[in-house]
Design a protein around this nucleic acid. Structure first.
Length: 599
RNA sequence: GGGCCCGUAGUGUAGUCCGGUUUAACACGCCUGCCUGUCACGCAGGAGAUCACCGGUUCAAAUCCGGCCGGGCCCGCCA
């Protein structure tokens, strides 16, 4: 169709030229004898003027309604100075309409596209997603996402990575999230699983000698949804041969630096101001450090309020809650809320304690250091010297408030970590326009699953342990919780946006790990035999990482939900209000795939 | 599986606590008419709501109670 310009790109340079435009009626201002149209396409809007001098043309223009699709042609003319609209890019000119064709009409949309002063309920937005996506904000988000993916792919291409697609119909493997299953028609009673990640295939690609692979990969996990979790999501997945952890980290840091530099203008536009570029290298915290200082394996480094361990100082105190906890091998952790005496109300303190209790702590002890000395329900149990040591360790000064949790190490950390986040928000310590990346390294290889009553892989069972691989079994028998993995997570502003590891490339070690986490010989062969066999044919040392693209885009664009950067997301109950998926199917379809439902 | 919040014209909200004063209000949108310089055009008029659904209490329910469906946030879950 004839189109000489995009709406948002007509300008002073086009004055007196005949312009052909295609687009949607964004707004219509009917003055009786003169009609103004704001015509919109993907590039922006431009004003079209239809005068009543041409009766036939004017009659057509009178029929127009919002979101009608039209072809317009006419001369671009300069606007008189008093009619220039500074608010739009094309505001210095307008199109004097000489021809107007209605390509399609539109029902009145349930979503206001032009003047979205209020946002409809998300259900309405998802039901009419194709209208919601017409809004500037949503289009910008998708364009931004596109640019980000292109920039990353270009960078990796330059660095010698090749993009390879891996199957969606693959094999269900135990461990990890619940699988989405796909029944096989040709093989009655058998199922494919949609991949939770391309993990095993990218390892096989390394064994195949591809050396550097990447993919913008769709992943599927049948778990409950959150504002940052969808049942299908996208990862920038990569894998490299002959690398150490630091080689992988360097590639990701390089990719992000390059990408954010490319997107600098877009990010600044989102934030309405200049955002400082990221500095390389990103800081690194060991997992132990992250837990100890921030009470989280995904620490938010946008503010301080770090946790302080005072277990050793209260070992022999007469405050029995503390002393007993330490004696039992637990920890006493503390946060110093600077000037908390004035900034924290009693009600707020009580709310924090409620949070602590919900998370499994027995309580949240507090101490206010007033100008008249300590005020606290537990102060009387402490000797003067003990308090002084605590003040020194926590850098506590007059007016500060100390919050304590005494419990098992992980509970104490988790609880105070949550309290810290709540305080950060409440006391407005967080700069929402800053990006704090950090690596968390040296994760434990195993963790104990209370529900399954066994040790499981913390990351996944293909992660290489640190240290001498041949000693893995002895080490596991001695101290399973102390074994560290060659794993690393990338964290941005308190959200995990990626993770990876150096993999096990020796068949014998891989076999041992499966055994350690309690997978029987028969099951190892049935589920993972192909991997172990592949490792036996000259598998190179390799490792990689995957970035959660949806989350990354969401955070860079400053959105609160991953759904705002996904074209067609699902609701919290994993439904698609637009298509109605999932839905019942024809009985014949079920018969074909040998499925009988039992509900 | 659990906790909290929400559901009122096409859209966003008020009204819900404390039942009757409401013929369910307001804004945007929509329809009709008027208007040749607007740009979130303006002016005049109009239509549009089984108050999510089902049941209960009551002389009387958008309002109270129970159930149920749907949405959101979170915990669990997410190698």
């Amino acid at each position: 169709m004839k189109r000489t310009h995009n709406c948002g790109e007509v300008g002073v340079k086009d004055i007196d030229h005949e312009i052909y435009l295609l687009g949607w009626v964004h707004r219509r201002r009917d003055h009786g004898g003169l009609i103004f149209l704001d015509l919109r396409d993907r590039s922006g809007i431009v004003q079209v003027v239809v005068s009543s001098q041409d009766a036939e043309l004017f009659a057509t223009a009178e029929k127009l309604r919002i979101e009608y699709v039209v072809q317009v042609s006419g001369k671009a003319v300069k606007r008189s100075p008093e009619t220039i609209n500074q608010q739009i890019k094309t505001g210095e000119i307008e199109i004097k309409c000489s021809n107007l064709e209605i390509l399609n009409t539109s029902k009145t949309p349930p979503i206001e596209i032009a003047d979205a002063t209020t946002e409809p309920d998300e259900m309405v937005r998802l039901r009419y997603r194709y209208l919601d996506l017409r809004k500037d904000k949503m289009r910008e988000n998708l364009v931004f996402r596109h640019k980000l993916i292109r920039a990353m792919a270009n960078y990796l291409d330059q660095k010698g990575f090749i993009e390879i697609e891996t199957p969606f119909l693959t094999k269900s493997t135990p461990e990890g999230a619940r699988d989405y299953l796909v029944p096989s028609r040709v093989n009655p009673g058998k199922f494919y699983a949609l991949p939770q990640s391309p993990q095993l295939f990218k390892q096989l690609l390394m064994i195949a000698g591809m050396e550097k692979y990447f993919q913008v990969a769709r992943c599927f996990r049948d778990e409950d949804l959150r504002s940052d979790r969808q049942p299908e999501f996208t990862q920038l997945d990569l894998e490299m041969s002959f690398v150490t952890r630091d080689d992988v980290i360097e590639v990701i840091e390089g990719t992000l630096k390059h990408t954010l530099a490319e997107l600098e203008k877009d990010i600044d536009k989102y934030r309405g101001k200049r955002i400082p570029l990221i500095e390389l290298p990103f800081p690194r915290l060991t997992w132990d450090e992250a837990m100890n200082r921030f009470g989280s394996d995904k620490p938010d480094l946008r503010f301080g309020l770090e946790l302080v361990d005072i277990s050793d100082l209260v070992r022999d105190t007469e405050c029995m809650i503390f002393a007993r906890t330490v004696a039992a091998g637990g920890a006493v952790k503390c946060i110093n809320v600077k000037e908390g005496e004035n900034k924290l109300s009693r009600a707020e303190l009580e709310k924090l304690e409620e949070t602590a209790k919900k998370l499994g702590a027995k309580g949240l002890a507090w101490l206010v250091l007033t100008s008249n000395g300590p005020k606290s329900p537990i102060a009387k149990f402490f000797k003067e010297e003990e308090l002084e040591l605590i003040y020194t360790r926590t850098k506590c000064e007059t007016g500060d408030v100390l919050l304590f949790v005494a419990d098992y190490f992980d509970i104490a950390c988790n609880v105070l970590g949550e309290v810290r986040l709540e305080l950060g928000k409440k006391m407005q310590l967080i700069d929402y326009n800053s990006f704090h990346f950090t690596w968390v390294i040296d994760f434990p290889l195993f963790e104990y699953s209370k529900t399954e009553k066994r040790w499981v892989s913390r990351h996944h069972p293909f992660t290489s342990p640190q240290g001498n691989l041949d000693e893995i079994e002895e080490k596991f028998l001695k101290e399973p919780g102390r074994i560290k993995a060659q794993a690393y997570d990338l964290v941005l502003n308190g959200t995990e946006i990626g993770g990876g590891s150096i993999r096990i490339h020796r068949a014998d070690i891989q076999h041992k790990i499966f055994k350690i986490i309690g997978i029987g010989e028969e099951e190892i062969n049935r589920r993972f035999g192909f991997l172990i066999e592949a490792l036996e044919y000259g598998a190179p040392p390799h490792g990689g990482v995957a970035l959660g693209l949806d989350r990354l885009v969401m955070m860079l664009a400053g959105m609160d939900s991953i759904r705002d950067v996904i074209a067609f997301p699902k609701t919290q109950s994993a439904l698609c209000p637009l298509t109605g998926a999932p839905d019942v199917v024809d009985p014949q379809q079920l018969k074909d795939i040998h499925i009988r439902t039992a509900i």
